[in-house]
Design a protein around this nucleic acid. Structure first.
Lengths: 275, 275
DNA sequence: ACAATAGTGTCTATTAGACAATATGTA
DNA sequence: TACATATTGTCTAATAGACACTATTGT
């Protein structure tokens, strides 16, 4: 039937711009769903990619770990819901990055059925403020590698979501300024390099890495020296210079991922398979 | 409140895995939404990027053009819903690309409220079969440039969705084999080049373009000659060789977009703004 | 012959990869 | 001094950009 699009079935819908579901409607022809917003919030700590998880108290998947998230309210946008849930459940109120990345709606993904979830990818450099959730019950950072190795039982389809999110982050690292979201307002180049290495799970040549970052145009550079220096590490070493992000990131990251000539992964086109 | 995640508010939910909305529920604490699936299906015709639109018959935005789409059913996945709607409304049953790309849920996006839509990006090379929708009422291809210039009145927030979709397609063109989805099983290099040029709205050097495509590894190349040749055009010219896509596209396209040093577009990180 | 489209070659500038060498701190 | 980390430099390979040139068709 080629006809009304994004449209309720052509019945007489006698309701206004109210946000509630209509009174008398045929549920089979006019299905409704719960809509939740989940947030994959990442950070790199000591060269390791971490993800913030909260422990469930309620019954389905009780005690399992899950992505922070919750219900979209009828009067808020998806973006607003993501901000709100992130703040409410983890205390993080100013992530350096927060953007939608995929939506999951498989009928079987929630045992209670009919729950469509819009997932956001968030990034924050600071770790200290993370666990200081409002009235935090149990929220903590887990190494992504451990979680994806199955060391932690995740609720619902959250393991798959996490896997997809990490993959997306790795892609975006190459085409955007996402890397700078993992570090503070000032940072050392080693710190920044460790972000790339953690997410790509690969070693980068230090010299080449630094050269890439110094390659912006004269007016818009990738990193700008602050003149300051951080303290040397406990085991010594030359104190690193502190930089801040420049304006050149608009065209994406100057650091390119090495060709992964690993497993010739099969066709990935038709249906990236968000569900 | 850090607690139940992706969880209904902790009330006694006395329902099974049924797919209908629960009987007696507090709508404010337990809101539900209509979920639709819309499809931005693109094609390149005569060097011009086109999008398939259908004309609305029902009241909100009656007679306006809209993206094909419709309701997700409770027992189907989002991907399945996208396939179904695409087939039902446009007759396209085998797009060469179909993948989710963003979800829109602003409370004001539908005058009737509470409609969250999951949008898919589809690509097909063939034009002939497109308009042969099952019982097509009015569906046709429009030049994307015209539509985005406001020459066509689009329903809901579909103009914005289209704009986002085109941008996404342009990005993916660089990092995937998306370009090959716009051409048939065999194609000429000029055809393939016109795909890039249409979507990036830029001219590419023919020589350099062809060199890029010839640059895959010995075992996995980007294009493989079929030995065949297409007929020359009406105005003459050397008959072009026909190629088919090789296995080298796994690492993305060998054709890179020129740096667009145009308007120094403002920060695009926090909230790409899907709504 | 001439116009039109397809396809090749060549020179140079830029960028990427490997790796050596130097600088400056702590134990 | 020994060690550890930071920072710079150098040589070479690969890729990108600009552009000239050849090839094969239709009118």
């Amino acid at each position: 039937m080629l006809s009304a699009v994004t449209d309720k079935p052509t019945k007489k819908r006698s309701r206004k711009a109210g946000h509630q579901a209509p009174e008398g409607y045929d549920a089979s022809a006019y299905p409704t769903f719960s809509v939740t917003v989940d947030v994959v919030i990442m950070s790199v700590v000591d060269g390791q990619l971490m993800v913030l998880l909260v422990q469930r108290q309620a019954d389905p998947y009780k005690d399992a770990w899950a992505l922070p998230g919750g219900f979209k309210q009828p009067d808020e946008s998806l973006d607003a819901a993501a901000f709100r849930e992130l703040r409410e459940e983890t205390g993080v109120d100013a992530p350096k990055h927060l953007a939608q990345f995929a939506t999951y709606g498989d009928p079987a993904r929630d045992p209670r059925g009919n729950v469509v979830t819009v997932v956001y990818l968030a990034v924050t450099p600071e770790v200290g403020s993370i666990e200081a959730g409002t009235d935090a019950d149990d929220a903590r950072l887990w190494p992504v590698s451990s979680v994806l190795d199955g060391d932690v039982a995740l609720a619902f389809d959250h393991e798959r979501i996490l896997r997809d999110a990490v993959e997306r982050a790795a892609d975006q690292l190459e085409g955007s300024d996402l890397a700078t979201a993992f570090v503070g307002p000032t940072f050392t180049l080693s710190e920044l390099q460790s972000v790339y290495e953690a997410i790509w799970d690969d070693q980068l040549d230090t010299g080449n890495f630094r050269r890439s970052l110094s390659m912006g145009s004269p007016d818009a550079s990738y990193v700008v020296s602050t003149g300051e220096r951080a303290a040397a590490g406990p085991k010594g070493g030359r104190p690193p210079e502190l930089f801040e992000a420049g304006d050149a990131w608009i065209d994406g990251s100057p650091v390119k991922r090495a060709k992964r000539r690993t497993t010739k992964q099969s066709e990935q086109r038709m249906n990236s398979g968000n569900e």
